[in-house]
Design a protein around this nucleic acid. Structure first.
Lengths: 195, 195
DNA sequence: TCACAATTAAACACAGTGTGCGGCAACCAA
DNA sequence: TTGGTTGCCGCACACTGTGTTTAATTGTGA
C-alpha cells in the first residue's frame, strides 16, 4: 500500500520531528524547547527541519491539526454509535475525555503548564467553536441582545479545560465516563441557570 | 515622608521597568518581549537591569506580587465594609472584578493571550488557594475520600479565569457587579450540584 | 539502473543573553 | 556644602540559538 508521491524519507522525518517535540515538551516544557533540541532528539539535519517547517511553532501547529482531525473522527464515530445521545447537551465532552485517555501523552504535552500559550490558545479556540455549536444545537440560537450566550460559552470552555488538565495530571486515574459525568452535571446546572 | 534606605534612583528605575514591561506585553505579548526591548523602552542600562532582576521573568514576578498584595488589601477592605457578605460563598469574586476594573491595563497584560504561561500559572495557583479557602469556609472541610472537592475547585477557577478574560477583552463594558452576579449564579449551581 | 528528490554538515550573519569593568553622576547624611 | 557611598551607564565579551545557503551525499520510485 504505497502512497502516491509520498517519499518514505519525508514521512519518517516528519514523524521523528513530531515525536521529538512531544517528548521534549513533556521533559522541559514547550517554551524552553529549541529547534536545536528537536533536531538533536530526532536526528535530523538543521536544513532538513527548515525545509519542512518554518519553525518550532509551525511544527507544533501541524501536529495539533492532525490530532484535532483524529478527535473529530472519534467524535463522529462516538455520536453515531451511541444513538439518542447525539442531541444531548454538551455531547462533545465524553468523546473528548475518551480521546484524551487514548492519547494521554500527547494531551499532557498540550494542556498542562508544559504546553505553551500557542497550545492553550489553539485548544481554547477549538473548544469555543465546539461548545458554541453544541449550545446552538441544543438550546437554539441566542436571541438576547446581550452577550450572555458568549459568556456561558467562555464559562464552560474554561471550566472544561481546567477539569481536563486536572484529570490528566491526576495520579489516581478516574475513568473517562466518570469524569465526564462529573463535568457535565456541574456544567449543565450553570448553563440552565442562565443560558 | 522619606523611606529609609530607599534611593530615589532605584525606585525610579524599578518603576520604569515595570511600566515598560506592561506596555510591551500589551503591545506584542509577553513571549516576544525581550530584555532588550524592556531596557530600551524604560531607558535603562543593560547592567542596571540585571543588577535589579535576574531576568524578564523575575521582573514580571515582582510586579505580579505587588499587584497581588494590592488585591489582597482590596479584598479585606471590601469584605470588612460590606457586613454580612463575608460569609457568602465565592465572596472573592466581586472584589476581584472591581480590582480588575480599577487596573484594567495591568490585568489585560496578565490574563489574556498577551500574558505568558508564567502569568497564567501564577494566577491559577493564586486563585486555587483563594477558592479552596472560600469553599472550606462556606462548605466546611472536604470529608469525602475522592478528589471531588479538588475537582470542583479546578472547575470554578477555570471558569472564573475564562470569564475574567472575556470580560476584560470585551468592548462593551459590563459593570463589575453585573459580571460578578452572572459568574456567581452560574458557579453556585455547579458547586451545589456536587459540592 | 538512473535521474531526481531528500538529507546532510558546515559555515554565515544576526539577535538576544548574562557578566564584568571603569567612569560618571545622583544621592543622603553630616 | 561637602564627601563618601551608591546606583547608573556604556562598552565589550563569550555564549546560545536562529534561519539561510552551499555543495556533497544518499535513498527512493519508476
Amino acid at each position: 500500500m504505497k502512497k502516491n508521491g509520498e517519499d518514505r524519507r519525508t514521512a519518517k522525518t516528519r514523524a521523528s520531528l513530531h515525536q521529538a517535540l512531544i517528548s521534549l515538551i513533556l521533559r522541559k516544557g514547550y517554551d524552553s524547547v529549541t529547534v536545536q533540541d528537536i533536531i538533536d532528539e530526532a536526528n535530523v539535519g538543521r536544513s532538513t527541519f527548515y525545509s519542512h517547517y518554518t519553525g518550532k511553532e509551525d511544527l507544533f501547529r501541524k501536529g495539533f491539526d492532525s490530532l484535532r482531525q483524529l478527535l473529530g473522527e472519534h467524535q463522529n464515530r462516538a455520536l453515531r454509535s451511541r444513538a439518542g445521545v447525539k442531541d444531548r447537551i454538551l455531547a462533545f465532552s465524553r468523546p473528548m475525555f475518551e480521546h484524551a485517555a487514548d492519547h494521554k501523552e500527547v494531551y499532557q504535552a498540550l494542556v498542562g503548564n508544559r504546553g505553551g500559550m500557542v497550545a492553550l490558545y489553539q485548544i481554547q479556540r477549538f473548544l469555543t467553536e465546539l461548545v458554541r455549536a453544541d449550545l446552538t444545537a441544543t438550546l437554539g440560537a441566542d436571541k438576547s441582545n446581550t452577550g450572555q450566550r458568549e459568556l456561558v460559552i467562555q464559562f464552560v470552555v474554561g471550566a472544561f479545560m481546567a477539569v481536563l488538565t486536572w484529570w490528566l495530571d491526576h495520579k489516581a486515574r478516574i475513568p473517562p465516563e466518570r469524569i465526564d459525568a462529573w463535568f457535565r452535571s456541574m456544567a449543565m446546572e450553570s448553563i440552565l441557570s442562565i443560558g
